[in-house]
Simulated scan of single mutants.
Amino acid sequence: MEKYTRSIIPVIEYNYENLTTMEKTIADFFIKNKKRVDFSAKAVAERLFVSEASLSRFAKKCGYRGYREFIYQYEETFQDGRKKPVQGSMARVLDCYQEVLNKTYNLADETKLRRISRMMRKAERIFVCGVGSSGIVARETELRFMRIGMNINSLIERDMIRMRAVFQDERSMVIGLSMKGETKEVRYILRKAHERKAKCVLVTARNNPEFREFCDEIILVPGLDNLDNGDLISPQFPMLAMMDILYACYLDQDQSMTKAFLQDTAEALRESVQEV
């Protein structure tokens, strides 16, 4: 059974938008702070150039009776032995997610992921394909990479995956998502794309040597079959975690360019909201 640390940081975070500008300054300090310092009202007020009354108002907006109660809870995060075992349904779910993350750490090959991210940067168009829960990952992957300027499309309908297979060429890249590697449509598009000289990557929980026949790279993710409570967590979680690592590797290649794209897409969304 894993042990988890109780923290009031999430409490601050979900109250953040209700705070004034000054109170957000206080919140930022407590969220970002990683070490024990003098947390007395006087010391923190002097450090942040705010009044002690502001600290009290901030604490109350976070649901505490005052700054003293808030800081008592906050300081407990730094105490040895603060980690406590979790019981019941919560423990089963959280322990399962933690096991998946540990397995992801052991399976993630950063050198390979950087190699794949370079393939993605060179490709003129990318298709990420999956059905069912893998389709959810495909759609999320499209949205993530589209925001940084990538020409990427998700294919989640079986017939559409098959139809798109014949349009691949050496300028294309196909990323297939299938936990067991048995989804017929995903295998079909990877084979056809490979025959047409496209770069092909399969994300799967099965290390089947047959995949090497039609894939340039295989990204292995943890399976849920051998987890005691694998049926309690979302089946797409292992793939989402690994694709997030791939996304991070891609961002590392050219941070200035990707940050510019992110700012542009964020501005476009803000303009859309204002128009409504």
Rank of each mutant, 00 (worst) to 15 (best):
F70R: 01
I26V: 11
L177P: 00
K3Q: 13
S134R: 04
P10N: 06
T265P: 00
I9T: 02
L143T: 11
E99L: 13
F78P: 02
A193I: 12
P238K: 00
K35Y: 13
I26R: 00
E2F: 12
C215R: 07
C200M: 08
V273W: 03
K122A: 11
M160A: 11
D169K: 05
F211Q: 04
T25P: 01
A108G: 02
R68Q: 15
M90L: 15
N226T: 15
R57E: 04
N207G: 06
I156D: 00
C129R: 01
L220D: 11
L220C: 14
E76H: 15
V86E: 06
G181V: 02
S117E: 03
C215W: 03
Q79S: 13
T5S: 12
D244Q: 05
F167C: 15
M242P: 01
I233E: 00
V203P: 05
V137C: 07
D28T: 08
N208G: 04
T265Y: 04
P10W: 03
K192Y: 09
D264L: 11
D244C: 02
M257D: 12
Q255A: 12
L224H: 08
M150A: 10
R144I: 07
K180Q: 15
T258Q: 13
F261L: 09
E140Y: 13
L224Y: 09
C96L: 10
I12K: 01
M90I: 14
M22V: 15
S256Y: 15
G63A: 11
K32P: 01
I219G: 05
N226G: 11
S172F: 07
V276H: 08
Q168E: 12
L227Q: 08
N15P: 10
M90R: 14
A53Q: 10
E142A: 08
P209R: 10
N33S: 08
T77K: 13
Q253L: 15
D216G: 04
V174Y: 06
G81T: 08
E185S: 04
S56M: 09
G176N: 02
T21H: 10
R47C: 07
A27G: 06
L224K: 09
T21L: 09
N33R: 10
A198K: 13
V131F: 05
S178Y: 03
F127N: 01
G223R: 12
S89D: 07
I8Q: 00
R144G: 02
R147E: 06
K199P: 07
N207M: 08
A123T: 01
E46H: 14
R125D: 06
F49A: 14
F29A: 01
D216W: 06
T265F: 03
C96Q: 11
A43N: 14
S134Y: 01
C62G: 04
I152S: 08
P85N: 13
R164D: 14
A260Y: 12
V137E: 03
E2H: 14
L19S: 02
E210V: 14
R147L: 06
K83H: 05
L246V: 07
R65E: 15
Y72K: 15
Q87E: 15
C215K: 06
M239C: 00
E170A: 13
A266I: 07
M1D: 14
Q79P: 05
A205N: 09
Y74L: 03
L240T: 09
K122H: 09
Y16N: 02
S272T: 10
R114E: 11
L48E: 05
S234T: 01
E75D: 10
K83I: 07
V186S: 00
T258R: 14
V11R: 07
T20F: 01
G223P: 05
